[in-house]
């Protein structure tokens, strides 16, 4: 191994084994099925294509969130973030949103971002619930640290989950005040917020794994993805 390769290898974080998130599906008000499944590192370059168009959308702070998500995913892809994960939401195989985060410690989760690409069905809220479900029910953590970078996020997470303000606690995303989902709060809100069924039928899962890139974005009038 070349010296530079050795040095690079030493930069990579030591990863903690994380139980996988079992895929689930949730019926939407439209009657369609939202499938939530976990991505691997190899999926990142494809997902980036779905997110990059939103990096210039100022409305509802999509630019901030999309830019940061791109950075977080590239960081994960290139082995610069420890214990990160990404859950993807698809409807009829099309990418409609994603959530990501990481394990800060065995007992503390660090929520990164929730990005809803398709709007109007509260998909973001359901994906956020899936993320909290991963931390609390599968990784068995005690709490998750959460920030909001848009008023929409603040309404959905801080207010609806009654998250505990802990402003003295530093969150990895920087200066936005930190709020915390505790196990007590999760148990209180889980039934109302977190839907879905498992296992995902094989056929539905196969469609979800197509991960079709959105051809249009409600946030970008006139946008049409070139074939």
């Amino acid at each position: 191994m070349a010296v530079l390769d050795k040095m690079e290898a030493q930069l990579r974080p030591v990863e903690t084994p994380m139980v996988p998130y079992p895929a689930k599906y949730i019926t939407q008000a439209s009657g369609e099925k939202l499938v939530v499944h976990q991505l691997s590192r190899d999926d990142v370059p494809h997902l980036l294509k779905a997110i990059q168009p939103l990096t210039t959308v100022e409305k509802d702070f999509y630019d901030v969130v999309a830019c940061r998500v791109v950075s977080e995913l590239v960081g994960w892809l290139r082995y610069r973030v420890k214990d990160e994960y990404c859950l993807l939401g698809t409807v009829n195989g099309e990418i409609v949103g994603m959530v990501n985060g990481r394990m800060l410690t065995e007992k503390i989760g660090m929520s990164y971002h929730t990005l809803a690409i398709r709007q109007g069905l509260r998909l973001g809220a359901q994906l956020f619930a899936a993320k909290m479900e991963y931390h609390m029910d599968f990784l068995k953590q005690d709490e998750v640290w959460v920030v909001a970078e848009s008023p929409n996020g603040f309404k959905r997470w801080m207010i609806e989950y009654e998250l505990e303000p802990r402003f003295e606690q530093w969150h990895e995303l920087g200066g936005v005040p930190t709020y915390v989902l505790t196990r007590k709060l999760w148990e209180k809100h889980k039934a109302a917020k977190c839907g879905g069924r498992r296992p995902v039928p094989e056929e539905l899962m196969a469609v979800a794994k197509q991960m079709i890139l959105p051809s249009t974005y409600g946030q970008i009038p006139g946008y049409r993805r070139e074939a």
């Binding site: 509260r122 917020k193 977190c194 839907g195």
Partner: peptide, 20 residues
């Protein structure tokens, strides 16, 4: 709102109380 809810989904489905 430019979206038509599905009657069964918002009333009968197992996820109805989450989405509606």
């Amino acid at each position: 709102i430019q979206l038509v809810p599905n009657l069964e989904a918002i009333t009968e489905d197992e996820d109805a109380l989450t989405i509606n």
